[in-house]
Design a protein around this nucleic acid. Structure first.
Length: 564
DNA sequence: CGTAACGATGTG
DNA sequence: CACATCGTTACG
């Protein structure tokens, strides 16, 4: 293998900044673009090598924590391949390692702990962003994070922490540059004490980003800034590798890791406390002379709470006073909205009781209609049997049908198709005091409850079979709406004119009832929102966090007369 | 092609 | 198990 290495006439990382290429990138000492085999990356130059070209098997690689190519090792003899801590299983690998390299495996972790940052497909571990451990809290990615109150939709690392070399370009610093620039300018004029060192770091970083020539870390001496295409390819390998890893055993593959979280915490603590020389300082609790606990500003939780309480006592009264000085427009609006909502609720309730009344009325009418006796007269039937030639087409099946039976046919046809589909939600209906609204039949397969109107659901209910002697009973009307007090007395089976009239009338009423319920629901929601907004307004937290600035003390109410 | 969203996966 | 962050995908 060594001989192979010496044959290497080209450094693994040729500076290809010149050839922003189209052709596939080349890797390894063999300078081939093949990536469909196990590969290992040099932790110095970041070049990738085929395992078989350099006699490193995947199995061996599992024991390696840091790996350097021959080229890099020759140039910098201090680079030594480092192995994972011995574990029972890894002992078996030992002989193999010996063959491969003369350096002693089994380095202690301590030597490098904290000194190096993790490397991965997306982190070179060298550049400033890679080393950065704190999120800027400013960029879009930070703002998306849960810890900064975001929705966690984007789920990307802080822009200032995106590796300069390996992170995808679109994830790196963007127009935030602009705002940073502004901040930098403002900084000059602002009160210094508001700027902690963190801001300054950011500025430094910003400068790096705005000066493209600045190179990052050791990587740039020989390491290429990969062209986008090349970067993509390199990633692909990593990806392939990842998949493989997944197959044989998850944990094994990860090299270089670090307890970043812990470090963060410690750092934070340090920053707050380092004004005091030495590592013990006095507790900041009111009147407390004890020594603060390590990594804390206080000797005890109690002291912290006391100070916090004092802070509230100090600030809150002022803020309350301040708050009361100017009228709250939002509060007024809220009250108006509540009034409006209440009026609408009232109206909706009226409508609802009206609908309930009609519901019962309809049931009365239907019951009444049932009492009617079938009239055997033929004339009733004959009245409409003149124009038999006319043909119309069913809206569901598009078959030509006789107008006489059209209603009946289309109703049935529609029911047939409709019953083949489902229309449900995962929640059962819970409306207090409402009878017969939704079908609500549970479908265990889809785990849903049917949300058709009960009277209109052909999927879960069949129209009852009509006895021969049942009368149609549809209330007859004059000029469409005016009831005559008469009922259709044709046999139900024969009446084509009023087919399923009960069902349709019921559906009409029920649909309106549903609408009113929806309206009520919506109004409740609105009311709740307005109320929570009003309760939270000028609450303890809000008062502590925000304040109203009276720009012009002469006029407290800044609205125009028109708005008032 | 960039962006937003989101499932997947590694990590502590 | 929650969190961090990656790669993928749909979409404009």
């Amino acid at each position: 293998m060594d001989s192979e290495m010496s044959d290497m006439d080209q450094p693994p990382t040729v500076d290809n900044s010149g050839l922003e290429e189209e052709n596939a990138p080349l890797y390894c000492i063999c300078r081939k673009s093949d990536i469909n085999c196990f590969m290992i990356g040099c932790d110095n130059c970041n070049e990738w090598f085929h395992g078989h070209c350099i006699n490193v098997t995947e199995k061996m690689a599992k024991a390696i924590r840091e790996w350097y190519c021959q080229q890099c090792q020759d140039m910098d003899p201090s680079l030594e391949i480092k192995y994972r801590l011995k574990k029972t299983r890894e002992k078996e690998l030992e002989p193999e390692k010996g063959e491969k390299r003369s350096s002693t495996p089994d380095f202690t972790l301590d030597r490098r702990r904290g000194s190096k940052v993790k490397r991965s497909a997306r982190m070179c571990g060298e550049c400033e962003p890679c080393r950065r451990t704190e999120d800027c809290a400013q960029c879009d990615f930070c703002k998306d994070m849960k810890k900064f109150g975001g929705p966690n939709k984007i789920r990307q690392k802080c822009r200032l922490r995106q590796c300069v070399v390996r992170a995808r370009k679109m994830l790196r610093v963007r127009d935030e540059e602009l705002s940073l620039r502004e901040r930098r300018q403002n900084m000059m004029h602002r009160d210094r004490r508001y700027l902690d060192d963190y801001d300054e770091n950011e500025m430094e970083l910003y400068q790096h980003f705005t000066e493209p020539n600045v190179m990052w870390g050791s990587e740039d001496e020989d390491g290429p800034v990969y062209s986008p295409a090349r970067r993509k390819k390199a990633l692909k390998i990593k990806h392939v590798k990842r998949r493989e890893k997944k197959l044989d055993r998850k944990k094994e593959s990860r090299r270089h890791r670090q307890k970043q979280k812990h470090k963060d915490r410690v750092r934070h603590g340090d920053r707050a406390d380092t004004h005091h020389s030495g590592d013990s300082h006095q507790c900041l609790g009111p009147n407390c002379i004890e020594t603060a606990r390590p990594n804390s500003k206080y000797c005890s939780e109690d002291c912290g709470m006391k100070l916090a309480a004092n802070r509230i006592y100090e600030i809150l009264p002022q803020r309350i006073q301040q708050w009361q000085q100017s009228p709250c427009v939002a509060e007024e609006l809220g009250r108006k909205q509540l009034e409006r909502i209440r009026r609408e609720q009232q109206a909706a309730r009226m409508r609802l009781s009206e609908m309930e009344r009609r519901f019962h009325e309809l049931e009365g009418i239907i019951a009444n209609a049932k009492q009617q006796v079938v009239q055997q007269d033929e004339e009733v039937n004959e009245t409409e049997s003149e124009d038999t030639d006319l043909q119309i087409f069913c809206v569901s099946c598009s078959h030509p049908i006789n107008p006489k039976v059209a209603l009946r046919h289309m109703e049935r046809c529609y029911a047939k198709y409709e019953s083949q589909t489902s229309f449900g939600s995962v929640f059962p209906t819970r409306i207090e005091g409402a009878t017969r609204l939704f079908c609500d039949v549970y479908n265990p397969q889809s785990k849903t409850y049917c949300k058709r109107l009960q009277v209109l659901c052909p999927e879960h209910s069949r129209d009852p079979k009509v006895p021969v002697d049942e009368v149609c009973g549809c209330p007859l009307v004059r000029s469409v709406f005016e009831p005559t007090g008469e009922y259709c007395r044709v046999a139900k089976r024969k009446c084509n004119r009023h087919y399923c009239w009960e069902k349709l009338r019921r559906a009409e009423v029920d649909l309106e009832r549903v609408r009113v319920w929806y309206k009520l629901d919506e109004l409740f929601e609105q009311e709740r929102n307005v109320r929570t907004a009003m309760t939270n307004r000028a609450g303890l937290l809000a008062l502590m966090l925000h304040q109203t600035i009276q720009h012009d003390p002469l006029t407290t109410d800044l609205r125009t007369n028109k708005d008032r």
